[in-house]
Design a binder for these strands. Sequence first.
DNA 1: GCGGATCAC
DNA 2: TATGGTGATCCGC
Length: 787
Amino acid sequence: MLLNDHKAGMEGLDKGKINKIIMDASKGSRFYENERKKEDQVNKRIEEQRRKMKEITPTQLKDGELQADSILEDFDGMRDLSRTIVHIDMDMFYAAVEMRDNPSLRDKPMAVGGLSMLSTSNYHARKFGVRAAMPGFIGKKLCPELVIVPLNFDKYTAVSKQVRDILSDYDSNFCPMSLDEAYLDMTDHVIKRSRFSDKERTYLLRKVDKHQNVCLCDLNETIWEEEIQKSQNNCEENNVSSLNNCDTKDRNMDAKTNYSDTESPNVLRSSDTVCVICGKPLPDFEKKTFGFNVEDAVREMRSRIEQRTTLTASAGIAPNMMLAKICSDRNKPNGQYIIQNNKDAVMEFIKDLPIRKISGIGKVTEKMLNALGIQTTTDLYHQRALLFHLYSQISFHYFMRICLGIGSTTVERESGRKSMSTERTFREISTPIELYAKCRELSEALAEDLKEEELKGKTVGIKVKTVKFEVKTRVQTLPEYTCDVDTIFTAARDLLRIEIQNVAPQPLRLRLMGVRMSGLLHQTMCKKQQNTLTSLLKKMESTQQSVSSSKSSATSFVKMEGITEQPSVNCDENICTYANEERSLIEKNCLSLPEIPDQDAYSENDMCYNEVNHNKEYHNKLINDKTQDEIGSNIDSCGNPDQEEITSDDPVTSSTHEDTVKQLDQIDGSKQTVKSVIDKRQESSLKIDTAGQESTQKVTQKFNTTQKVTPPTQRVTPTKGDSTSTKDDLSLEKDTMEKLVCPVCFMEQSQADLDSFNQHVDSCLNKDAIMQILTEQKSWQKPAAKR
DNA sequence: GCGGATCAC
DNA sequence: TATGGTGATCCGC
Ligand SMILES: Nc1ccn([C@H]2C[C@H](O)[C@@H](COP(=O)(O)OP(=O)(O)OP(=O)(O)O)O2)c(=O)n1
Ligand SMILES: [Mg+2]
């Protein structure tokens, strides 16, 4: 709840005052209450940890220490100091882009996002305590002059690409962690660099006063050639930076200023007067030849980034990724820091490091460790015996590596994604029809995204967040891989229905819903559908009149649990002894790719074999680079067991589907280019869906007219109380109905008379929808009315 | 395999 | 008035 101040630019501010403002703004809110609940949970875990700790005998403790020392020795022996890893991180990235494009923001406290949520803030605003992941309205309270700029995600993507183009010159295999952050292994570059000519290490740097209306294009792209020519003629050598004999400390202190390592460079002026690109007057500039070592290489890289984008970056240089990450924060903004490749330098750096600085140790882990008297990495070492007993092996090893300052040294691209999801926050909705409409929207978006990356998945999940901020997730694994909207929606809807039923007769009041697909495989790797059978059944389905026959056929692969109740999850009792540690997470993302299995991958699902090559390449590139070969036609993903021709107008299923896609395309005009997992991860809308009305109506419309997949089913479905009946079992012949099931929410209704039942249905439907449904459904209501 | 929790950005 | 979205991992069932 309180202010997080572990980020850069948050030193020495009035924490007490800031916390009070945050508290006042939050107190009593549902958000706040939930935060407190979570905090209580953490405290319980800490108590549990204490309890466990007391049970440890001195003998066990001694044993733990021996075990730990043994592990430490092993790890230390495997320490790899041979690589030079660089972590580069743009300064206040989104905010910097916005300030660049609107200089009037430059000297104001500003943040990017909206009143509901901020993505980041500039350093001026950070002084007030305004930071990323803070709601904008609180930011305003902390700093009334705060200017909030909406996100321009496309711009950040474009800038990111510019930056990455430069990074690839230093490590073609660099690993982007986000739009503004990446790891590089510069070991090879430095070796190559030792043979670079001056020309290859020389760049032009603008010298420009703020507010000067001059060209800001990258001079290295406009006039580099001619300027370099000149200097070669002059055999200029004066600007070579050399830092070889300073000790590390001095070098890191110098690092703040980019050019401190050279004699004051000559100010130059091009013989041209205006830029060929932008037409503005060319600025004065200097010509700088960077040195040979890593630090100069990194300065050069950062400098080029600044020339190209006019944005600054900070960098960390260290023998492994864990350390490099911490270093990049050390001299932020616009600075760099190096840890030399020797154990002493590493240990010296690590010594008093607060554990929270380490990537993977977050708020909760910090608190749990603090409870053990651990604040720094040295404490971590001293408590190794305890940690051995209290934590899992994975966590323990992670901690021990931290003690030793060891981290991953293999910088590699991400492997393929494991899941894809889409979720949205909105103003409260609780009527089933709105909930299902939202679910449908999300399913459509997800299906679209899956297709864009040519993926199919086997496990569909939903996520819901109640208005009290309680989060639940539910998943269901399908028998076949799919990216078919209707199949996804059917599965998601069933999961949602269970949640609705779980809280009935109370409404399920949500502020967020998400749909997720995991168990992903590239389309071409999915088991082939029994084409003939599927399509055959489909044809039968579309031509058959009998409603009942289409159901429970072989194509019906969505679990129908009828009314069976879901075990309610009691969060309070679910005290996890230790809710886990992320640890190596980040580094693992970049770790060596899983081997392409020889057989295993195929055994499970009888996938196509012919894509092994492609797959390897796929792994080595950003994960959604397109593949060259396409296999086969679009095998229609899966039958849609749920589709039911209510209005027997004929447009075949496929066309309906395509219509949907088209509609989406129109609505969502901005067809993005292919994105990597990483890039999509940044793509957060910080706005709450308030336009719920329209979109809901749109979807509702679809449900009631064009769509075959209707919300639940558009009729009153009388059914027996037993769980064998599925929602699709609509046979009207049943005459011994005991209960009514609301067609919208699938809830059994116990009302004695039809009127109260209808009242319930009313509450589930908005006015427009109900008119349609009622007229369509009149006939069915009769049997029910007999009761 | 599922659900909750944690973490990064 | 108002507290985000995406992806991943780990733990304990
Ligand atoms: N909870 C968060 C954290 C970050 N971001 C976005 C906005 C940031 O601009 C970008 C990069 O994140 P950083 O953690 O690197 O933060 P900044 O670059 O903004 O600031 P710094 O100068 O501290 O790196 O990611 C976000 O959307 N949500
Ligand atoms: Mg940054």
